[in-house]
Amino acid sequence: MADQKTLTFVLMDAPYENARTTTALRLMHIAAKRGHEINVFAYEGAVYLPFALQKAHPNPVHGKDAEEEDHVLPREWVAEVMAEAERNGGKVDWINCGFCVDERGAHEAIEGVRRGGPPNLVAWVGESDNVLVIPTK
């Protein structure tokens, strides 16, 4: 596609901790719908966003079982963004910071996630049309 761009996002927040995660996924989803090449460098707690062992649970306060509650799993939203990009001629290249994975034991990730480090981010800076860092606070 003629207007395809390469956009890199740097994420730092662990899932379920801050609305920054939701906004980051919203931005990536918009870019995916436009068919862009999306790079994600997940740093620190963000390596848990595509963690494969996330599991939905019932909500006793809402009085709903796990199926009725249909609890959000960030790994599913990440996978949906990846699928949306591919449907529109783009792709998501997701790198989890390897050291961050090791110290957190977050090795089990969904398909499409690979391991890397700052040199990958430096390469992406050179290849991207833009880079947005969404830091934790």
Binding site: Y43, E44, G117, P118, P119, L121, V122, V125, P135, T136, K137
Partner: peptide
Amino acid sequence: RGTIEEQDDTVIWTVHAMRKAGQ
């Protein structure tokens, strides 16, 4: 933030690692 556990500032660490990679 996290400096005791990480034994550094993670952003300063990243900037340094990127510098080593030529950034």
